[in-house]
Simulated scan of single mutants.
Amino acid sequence: MPSISIPVLVLWGDEDSFTPVDGPVGKYFSSLPSQLSNVKLIVLEQVGHCPDDDRPDLVHEKLLPKLVG
């Protein structure tokens, strides 16, 4: 991740049981915004491992402004 210079938006479900946000991978990605200015993490409430399947409306709400704006 440190070699990526383009903006990165990470959407993570707070109910992800496969890769929980408090697990090793989740902790790594949670730490990135404080280390890399191009990374933004948004934890989505009441969302599991596949945010775009679980809550497509919420994913679109967070993702579309980044694509359009």
Results as ranks from 00 to 15, higher is better:
5 S>Q: 14
37 S>K: 14
55 R>S: 13
68 V>E: 05
2 P>N: 07
3 S>G: 07
24 P>K: 07
65 P>D: 00
20 P>G: 07
19 T>S: 13
5 S>T: 15
14 D>V: 07
9 L>S: 03
32 L>R: 08
67 L>P: 02
55 R>E: 15
42 I>Q: 13
44 L>Q: 05
10 V>I: 15
35 Q>P: 00
4 I>M: 06
35 Q>C: 01
58 L>T: 06
31 S>W: 02
53 D>V: 15
29 F>T: 12
4 I>V: 15
52 D>W: 11
15 E>H: 15
62 K>H: 08
37 S>T: 12
52 D>Y: 13
11 L>S: 04
33 P>D: 01
10 V>C: 09
65 P>M: 00
41 L>D: 03
63 L>Q: 00
54 D>S: 12
35 Q>S: 07
28 Y>E: 04
9 L>P: 01
7 P>A: 01
49 H>G: 10
56 P>T: 03
31 S>Q: 03
66 K>W: 15
42 I>P: 00
16 D>L: 11
63 L>C: 01
68 V>A: 02
32 L>T: 06
60 H>R: 09
32 L>I: 02
13 G>V: 09
59 V>I: 05
15 E>G: 06
45 E>W: 04
67 L>T: 01
24 P>N: 10
31 S>G: 13
39 V>W: 09
57 D>W: 05
26 G>P: 09
51 P>G: 14
65 P>N: 03
3 S>A: 11
45 E>F: 07
49 H>Y: 09
1 M>T: 10
30 S>F: 00
44 L>D: 04
66 K>V: 12
36 L>E: 11
57 D>E: 14
30 S>T: 06
23 G>C: 09
36 L>H: 13
26 G>E: 11
50 C>N: 14
31 S>L: 00
13 G>P: 08
13 G>Q: 06
38 N>E: 03
68 V>Y: 07
64 L>M: 13
38 N>H: 12
66 K>H: 12
63 L>G: 01
67 L>M: 11
5 S>M: 08
50 C>E: 13
19 T>G: 05
54 D>P: 03
55 R>L: 13
